[in-house]
Amino acid sequence: MRARRLTLSTFIAAITLGLLTLATPAVAAGPAPAAGQPEAYILIDEGLVIFDPALAVVSLRYACYGDPTTMDVTATVGGVQASGSVSIPCQGVLELGTQVQLRVPEKAPQFPPGTYDVAVHASIPGQATLDRVVNVEGPAPSSAVFLDSFVSPTEVAKGRKITITGNVRTGGFEAPTALKLALEFRPDGGAWGKLKTVRSDADGRVETKVRARTSGNFRLRFAGSATLDPATSYPNYVLVRPKPKKYKSCTALNKVYKHGVGRSGATEVGLGVKSWTRITPTYDKNSKLDLDKDGVACEKV
């Protein structure tokens, strides 16, 4: 007997007549609490963090029973209320963790700057609730400016170019366009001085280049304006080495590099010298002076 191909029409008819059944995959549920087992619960884990005037995130730990469900959370201070929910699995006595984003409705009062108490209410419907007051740091005022900076490379030969990059944001997490910043430099043992003026782009990014003259720190500084507060980035140190030079002898080399010069990553063998200078380009120009070929030339105690 030949088997007949099951067409769409016969498939639908078979379901209608009850000849075929469609099984719905079951979702595994956590076991219900047995006698003596703890009830479902919710705990605040790492507290509440307010990221901006309309957004907060709360970290929670919990245990629940039965099918996957939702956790609903609200945070209230004065006339401000932010809320959110998240889908969660339940695994009985096994404690789980989750984070919930809490958003303030559009055009509603927002989280103010400052430090204050926030009432947090969380619930797993039919199983557990949490009511807790937490002390939080509100969002930075919109006038606040956050400024960071980076340099590359952090070790360079004299005369080579250094790239300074940075980012600027305000307390409202906006990126000010064409914000005038001062690039400042402080040489070792010296004072801060302005090198040039740079401007941030539409995304709040800053990038500029300067030539390395001497070792020291670079930073970006914003002097402030009628609507924005002053700000200064954390300083970034750059070590400036002399230009790679070939020396006639170890006597001449040791006048500049007292304990010798070597390739980065090398290990001096023989004398146990630790304080030799690591400059690969200079070593490469003087590798013939490295008699024991350990990657360090003219090592000297």
Results as ranks from 00 to 15, higher is better:
Leu6Ala: 03
Thr7Lys: 01
Leu8Ile: 12
Ser9Glu: 11
Ile12Gly: 01
Ala13Lys: 12
Leu17Val: 05
Leu20Thr: 06
Leu20Asp: 02
Leu20Phe: 15
Leu22Ser: 04
Ala23Glu: 15
Ala29Asn: 03
Gln37Pro: 08
Glu39Asn: 10
Ala40Cys: 10
Gly47Val: 04
Phe51Asp: 13
Ala54His: 09
Leu60Val: 00
Tyr65Gly: 13
Gly66Ala: 08
Asp67His: 09
Thr70His: 09
Thr74His: 05
Gly78Tyr: 08
Gln81Asp: 04
Ser83Ala: 15
Ser83Asp: 13
Val93Phe: 01
Val93Ser: 12
Glu95Ser: 11
Leu96Cys: 00
Thr98Pro: 03
Gln99Trp: 00
Leu102Ala: 05
Glu106Lys: 15
Ala108Cys: 02
Phe111Met: 04
Pro112Ala: 11
Pro112Ile: 02
Tyr116Pro: 05
Ala119Ser: 15
Val120Lys: 08
Ser123Met: 02
Pro141Met: 03
Ala144Gln: 08
Asp148Arg: 08
Phe150Ala: 13
Val151Gln: 01
Ser152Leu: 15
Pro153Leu: 10
Arg160Asn: 13
Val168Asn: 01
Phe173Ser: 06
Phe173Cys: 06
Phe173Gln: 12
Pro176Arg: 11
Asp188Gly: 04
Gly193Pro: 00
Leu195Trp: 04
Lys196Tyr: 01
Val198Arg: 02
Ala202Gly: 00
Ala202Pro: 00
Arg221Thr: 08
Ala231Gly: 05
Tyr234Met: 14
Pro235Gly: 03
Val238Tyr: 06
Val238His: 03
Leu239Phe: 14
Cys250Ser: 09
Lys255Gln: 14
Tyr257Gly: 08
Lys258Ile: 05
His259Pro: 00
Val261Trp: 11
Gly265Ala: 06
Ala266Gly: 07
Thr267Asn: 07
Thr267Lys: 14
Gly270Ala: 01
Gly272Met: 13
Gly272Gln: 10
Lys274Thr: 15
Lys274Trp: 08
Ser275Ile: 01
Ile279His: 09
Thr282Gln: 08
Lys285Tyr: 14
Asn286Cys: 11
Lys293Asn: 14
Gly295Gln: 11
Glu299Trp: 04
Glu299Lys: 13
